[in-house]
Design a protein around this nucleic acid. Structure first.
Lengths: 122, 122
DNA sequence: TCATATGGTTACTTTTTGTAACTTACTCTT
DNA sequence: AAGAGTAAGTTACAAAAAGTAACCATATGA
């Protein structure tokens, strides 16, 4: 991220930004966290846990998360078809980092809410 | 985040999601990281470092980040006006967490790029 | 025969972002 | 004295992303 301080460099030279924008996307985070909690989840279950996500965005995110190597998709030729999503080893290493962040969030959430109130009053 | 596993609960009961969506937003992250690197930055400098951000989004983000308590804004009644942004103590505690995440990203960025290549070939 | 289930996709609408020009008020240049 | 420059934004308009809801194939159970 701070590898180059020369801000005139175009973002193409900072792939970290690109990688992060996928991995720390709001929905991606929730998907990865739930897959970390349950070892494997099917499409519709995942949709229920990641409350509020649409089919469209869920399938989009699953694709890019698979492409980036965080999750794996296994389809079983049954009827109706069964598809199972789970974290890869790489995904597991990421979810650990994410959990640290969410713990911080959970701890500091009340503080943020308080700040918002205070700010709103001014 | 996993305080309630009952996925039927509406997201209103999970303010962590709300707080995170502000704090882990793509642009917010970059703003906070740069303010962590330089103690204080003015609007236009910040804009140069956070490469690619627009005036509009920058000022939006600065407002919500201020409201949530991560940054503070000091305006000096000079001509032309001078405005300095910096992290609050709370913001500093957050940037530490963020740096852990970005270090992981930086380390694993090549792996993600490799995964993308592989995936593209199939 | 009609509804149900799965894992999506598609067309359409709404919301969010990005772009670029403009603002205010003072100072420096020509 | 006219015009340009500066700082920190704002605003109107265009483009991109996200949300909504209907639909698809296929088979099973009522």
């Amino acid at each position: 991220m701070f590898g180059h301080i020369d801000y005139k460099n175009p973002p193409e030279l900072c792939p970290v930004r690109d990688v992060m924008s996928v991995a720390s996307d709001q929905w991606s985070v929730l998907i990865i966290l739930w897959l970390g909690y349950f070892e494997t989840l099917r499409f519709n279950k995942l949709k229920k846990y990641v409350y509020g996500i649409s089919n469209k965005v869920l399938s989009q995110r699953l694709k890019v998360l698979e492409a980036d190597g965080y999750i794996s998709r296994k389809a079983y030729a049954e009827v109706p078809i069964r598809v199972e999503y789970s974290l890869t080893e790489f995904g597991h290493s990421y979810v650990e980092k994410l959990l640290e962040l969410t713990e911080w969030m959970q701890m500091n959430c009340p503080k943020v809410m308080a700040n918002r109130e205070k700010y709103g009053l001014l």
